[in-house]
Design a protein around this nucleic acid. Structure first.
Length: 114
RNA sequence: UGAGCAGACUAUGCGGCAGCGGGAACGUUUUAGUUUACGAGGAAAGUCCGGGCAUCACAGAGCAGGAUAACUGCUAACGGCAGCCGAAGGCGACUUCAGGGCAAGUGCAACAGAAAUAUACCGCCCGUUUUUACGGGUAAGGGUGGAAAGGCGAGGUAAGAGCUCACCGGAAUACAUGAGAGUGUAUUGCCGUGUAAACCCUAUCCGAUGCAACGUCUAUUGGUACUUUUAAGUCAACACCUGCUCGGUGGAUUUAAGAGUAAUGACGGCUUGAGCUUUGGGGCGACUCAAAGCCUAGAUAAAUUGCCGCACACGACAGAACCCGGCUUAUCGGUCUGGUCACAAA
RNA sequence: CUGGGUGUGGCGCAGAUGGUAGCGCGCUACCUUGGGGUGGUAGAGGCCGUGGGUUCAAGUCCCGUCACUCAGA
């Protein structure tokens, strides 16, 4: 991933859940917030509700793949957290990719403020 | 041909494009980059046992506590496995078993029943007698119960009773046999049910903590915690080693001053190992010995994927996290091997 | 990684060393009131998370398993 670091501190996740803009979809929820840095930071959450370890790993893989495909269209300088939901399991990656492309932009330029 | 038993193996395959993880090589001041081979399981799961490894100063003795339970072996070890004994089930191949000791001691056995671990309600027999009660003997018969005086038949007796005898079940002793559990034979009337997954007894085993162990390097703040040195005071007891006792080690603690360390982050621990494959030898087998060859995940918000095409049986359960040996549980199916029973044919 | 705890009517909980499973709230019907509440009487509702085992007999004892939950590093 060209312009992206991973987000791995529990503190940062909690900060985004409280202060970030959110977009809710059928397969996942996206939280976004500007971070005033020249690169993006991405965090992916797949909780216990998604399923067992195999399903959680698949959810994370698909989301990461979708992000990679759309990376060029996403503006720089954002913290992004994507939380997988249970219905992501039986879905092909193309659907997620399409959905992500739309949702990130709406989140970045005017998602519902919390 | 059908049914059934046991064991072993496998876990969609092939191709194209894009991508991920750490390793090696090339390259670069460094970063970026290029090439190349490799990259989840039979259960990786549950964390139920056992061991390695690391630290706790020595890793001690006894009690307590916990675990296991026929026997002989295998193993680093085990609660695992193999063989074998016994019991139960199946026509059989075969399967299942917490399978030591209630005949050491203690406890418990509701309701029913006269009586539940010691007794006489009805009945049977004897005696006394006011002929309808009292005393005594008796576990053959009745009913209750999961369990009722080892079972059953004969003798015997006032009536009965292992009181005596035959057969069967158990126990003890002796002899034979086996490595042993055991098995066989003989003798002794020696014989109050069940429960130890009730307390308990017997034998064997167990020091504690877990890779967030542990080691190395390091920023900032502050005098927080720990260690240590010196000085002063107090106490002869206190702290630690496992819950207690013995035993061992250190004298212990408070205040003041000085010195050092820890936290945070990074790296190591981390994958060459009770390793895998093949061949040969030993053993009924678990397993083991020798030789040759091989290197086969090591991540840290955590890598095996996405899309397309073809084939068919249309793809189950499921993702390493210090490492091994087991156990248990989940699982769409497929293949092979060896026994068994029934039917038919030769 | 390690060690505990819980599971019982709709809800919250009892059930000491095995012997016919209860309490409070709630629910249903009736009485009381002009009506409602309160109060009173009667009643329904449970294979005790699940699969085995020990025992004459298991909610209770033992083993496996599922779910939830707590503590420590």
């Amino acid at each position: 991933m060209l312009y992206t670091e991973t987000l791995n501190k529990n503190k940062d996740f909690l900060f985004l859940y409280r202060k970030g803009k959110s977009v809710v979809g059928r397969y996942a929820v996206i939280y976004v917030r500007p971070n005033k840095k020249p690169y993006n930071r991405l965090g992916i959450t797949a909780g216990k509700k998604v399923g067992n370890a195999v399903h959680r790993n698949r959810a994370k893989r698909i989301i990461r793949q979708a992000y990679r495909e759309n990376e060029k269209d996403i503006p720089l300088g954002l913290d992004i957290v994507i939380v997988a939901r249970a219905s992501i399991c039986g879905v092909k990656s193309g659907v997620i990719s399409e959905w992500l492309a739309k949702s990130v932009k709406t989140a970045a330029f005017g998602g519902s403020e919390k």
